[in-house]
Amino acid sequence: MQFEDFFSVVRQRLGSDKSDESSKKKTDIPAGLLFKCPRCRNVTFIEEFNQNGKVCPTCNYHSRLTARERLKITVDDGSFREFDRKMISKNPIDFPGYEGKQQQLREKTGLNDAVLTGRAKIRGMDLVIIVMDSNFMMASMGSVVGERITRAIEYATAHSLPVVAFTASGGARMQEGIVSLMQMAKTSGAVARHNEAGGLYISVMTDPTTGGVTASFASLGDIIIAEPKVLIGFAGRRVIEGTIKQKLPDDFQSAEFMLENGFVDMIVERSKMRRVLAHLLKLHKQPEVKEVAENE
């Protein structure tokens, strides 16, 4: 398995998906027959796009996966044990219609909120994994996202496990007001404690990683990986264009832009992600910690 073809795994695992809601929305063609790439605007048959692991065959833009799809191609089969599966958000600022909107999305996505967290294995190595899902309110960070991520990191710290977080987010969850902002402090605080305990944290930025998530735990990995061509940034593109009164270049706030400016360690293709993570996890295994403690 040393040289297993992960690309074919991606193909196998994603090709058989029954529905593809997110891609349908991106194109005006009915029945979701085509995928129109938001980066290069080229159009591909959805079947070909899916077989390519939801990567644009023209420009290599790595499109969005659901959290379940991500887990499938990332962790060992059957190894995922979900934490806090039944947590749902309340309505901290009594925002009109927020409960209804959540209920609707829960039914549509099968998720309780925009993140899955749990224990899993990659090539037999234990880790805590965090996967955000942009199909649920653009994976904005509210109480549940903040609490689940914080608990997952705390669990990893307590059990001396590494954390791998696949980030994707439109930013703060406006409907939760200031409570949403405080989740940035909570999650970053958990990372601080994980750091002090010597734990590894790998952040993998996927499309789109923006706003309050970029300005908190996503940017705090010991190692920061990004998928090719994905959107990464703090302020919204339109907000910046409005401020400077001019159009921004296409590659602004891309993974490549972040690499060039020094905010990402490496760009890794989806087909190689599992293998890269496995190698990095292996290089950070610390059996010596226990021995040192015993020698004292």
Partner: peptide, 18 residues
């Protein structure tokens, strides 16, 4: 929210302070 601010890592700077 500006071009230079993004280039120099506005998100990272805020995250690190927090």
């Amino acid at each position: 929210p500006g071009v230079e601010a993004e280039k120099r890592g506005q998100g990272e700077a805020i995250a690190r302070n927090i």
